[in-house]
Nucleic acid binder design. Structure first.
Lengths: 344, 344
DNA sequence: CTGAAAGCGCTTACAG
DNA sequence: CTGAAAGCGCTTACAG
């Protein structure tokens, strides 16, 4: 179609790009009508709409997101801020969010807050300049400033991972109840000296620790000396290291609750090397049910958290909010499941 | 500053947003000068430039990316297309790319091609509508259509993970040489019946297989019956399963080269259960040196591939290309390293 | 149901 | 070195 293209090129700043006008011309309508037909809004004669859609398809037309965002003061972008990009938990979350939002025509802009509330606030401020249609955040990692920004922006948002009762939208689970559940399982198995080991001390970790402490305190078994908390990054290697240190310092420990499966997997490997019998001598429980946990020796007892479900449900909820729907239950509890295998 | 804001609100479609005009007014210059000062282009009186920067900072001004993209026909977006979001290899890549590009003021738009060249082409077409400043792709997964699109777009791009000699820009390593290296190490250790096991059959897998076959053929040891290739998703569980099947079908196998560490880790666990002694009875080598490989029992011999390095270097190379520099060595070989531990 | 006008917030190209 | 004009490609608000 050299003529069309030539005609468009007359302006000095033309980009040579295929525009809505080309589609409109081909369909024999005005650009406004073409715009409406393509977006499926307003009243357009079905026949005309069909012609427009055919023209767009024939020309392989893709609307310019920048022009669209500028004109409508809203971009089809959803901002997703996660605490880490190297944690399997958040990868599955990202993947699930993508799966729901991409087919719905949204771009997912991912920000890595590195478990740092300050970074989260900075990223939020910067990403808000894109005028996103929606926000997916973790509430517990927010500063007051970030919370204010989020509210003032007027952009719909959903909080991920945990739950709250302040009227905001949540998709997550009670981290504290999960912590309590593990402690109770271990006590029910007759364990008395139950340790809690955690790295990467974010808010969700502390909530789980609170649940653990609550349960043990109620049973008169809480011993602060059995809590090992380190800000280091959670990893298999660190789990092995912490295991070794703990059993040498407290040889009487009879159960260990690791805050993440990577730590627990490392501990299991270390137990193998130290010839510590699991669960006979020490019971071990992990958290999250990550890849490999059902295959390690012995198979790891852990808490399954539905990350993909959180991703899908939060994206779906956000989709509803973005089109102005009201949500009946703003705090969606996706639950957790204690998966009892061989290690405890 | 209610007056300023009130003045701006006179137009019916005003968004209430803080604009370049506000910054210019505060600094006492025209918007064009403010624009130039903020971008650091063109000649601007240093004193004026300083005033503009101060005004922007005082107002907490963030330029509108949409307006910027529309006016300049280029957005500060880099598109990164990866074959998977659930593979640790690509997560580390994504993280490293982010680390370089975000501070440089670019947004990274991530697309998941799901190992499907068709999806890659579709995503490319769609993402190109954002007029990205640069593209980060895996060449071997491209269709001819995608390659044509990439070229025609005029957008600078760098291919990740492997190498090529067609003048395009690459940051990666010779997957075939790595495959050959593993096979040679096993043969040097006296192994004669060396199996190759792979899942998720992408091009890089096939290149490694080619290297393996080449080395074994040269030594007269190649046995096609010892190649196990499955299109299933690579995982620890699958590794365990393939291990069991292979040793029962071919009890004489004395070494296995797994195409990814997750498979090898699963195989090690299965060997533990089946009481197969590694490496005495069967040597096992993995690929990629993923998390946990140095901790498993026995510690896994594998090939370390520098994913973070690929991410950083490719982002840095793209940054240079985007500002019009020429690259002296368009194909950057980041190499690989055979890490000999206990399993082979 | 359809369209001409104006505007979104920037940058480019041109003058001075 | 600085700025007034025009334009990027869409959509909104207003008429008809």
């Amino acid at each position: 179609m050299p003529e069309t293209s030539g005609a468009r090129r007359r302006a000095s700043r033309s980009t040579g790009r295929l525009t809505l006008r080309d589609v409109a011309e081909r369909a024999g309508v005005s650009p406004i009508t073409a715009s409406r037909a393509l977006r499926g809004v307003g009243r357009v004669d079905p026949q005309l709409a069909q012609r427009v859609r055919e023209a767009a398809r024939a020309l392989n037309y893709v609307p310019d997101p920048a022009a669209r965002a500028l004109a409508s003061a809203r971009s089809r972008v959803v901002v997703l801020l996660v605490p880490s990009l190297s944690n399997q938990v958040f990868m599955e979350l990202i993947e699930a969010v993508h799966e729901v939002l991409e087919p719905a025509g949204y771009q997912v802009l991912i920000g890595n807050t590195r478990y740092d509330p300050g970074v989260q606030e900075r990223l939020l401020h910067q990403y808000l300049s894109h005028r996103p249609s929606g926000l997916l955040l973790t509430r517990s990692d927010q500063t007051d400033g970030a919370r204010a920004l989020t509210n003032l922006s007027g952009v719909p948002y959903v909080y991920l991972m945990d739950l709250g009762h302040d009227g905001a939208h949540y998709v997550g689970l009670s981290q504290q109840a999960a912590g309590r559940c593990v402690a109770e399982h271990l006590m029910a198995g007759g364990r008395r000296r139950i340790a809690f080991v955690a790295a990467q001390l974010d808010t969700r970790t502390r909530q789980r620790e609170a649940g653990y402490r609550e349960a043990l305190t109620a049973a008169g078994l809480y011993d602060p000396d059995l809590s090992v908390l380190t800000p280091e990054r959670s990893s298999i290697g660190l789990g092995a290291q912490l295991m070794r240190r703990l059993v040498s310092r407290r040889p009487d420990v009879d159960a260990i609750f690791f805050n993440n499966d990577d730590l627990a997997q490392g501990a299991l490997l270390e137990a193998l090397r130290l010839r510590i019998r699991v669960p006979d001598q020490v019971a071990i429980v992990g958290f999250n049910d990550l890849e490999g946990s059902e295959h390690v020796v012995p198979r790891l007892t852990t808490v399954r958290t539905p990350r993909a479900e959180i991703g899908r449900q939060s994206a779906t909820m956000l989709l509803a909010l973005m089109q102005g729907d009201r949500i009946a239950r703003p705090a969606l509890d996706v639950g957790f499941e204690l998966v009892i295998r061989e290690s405890a």
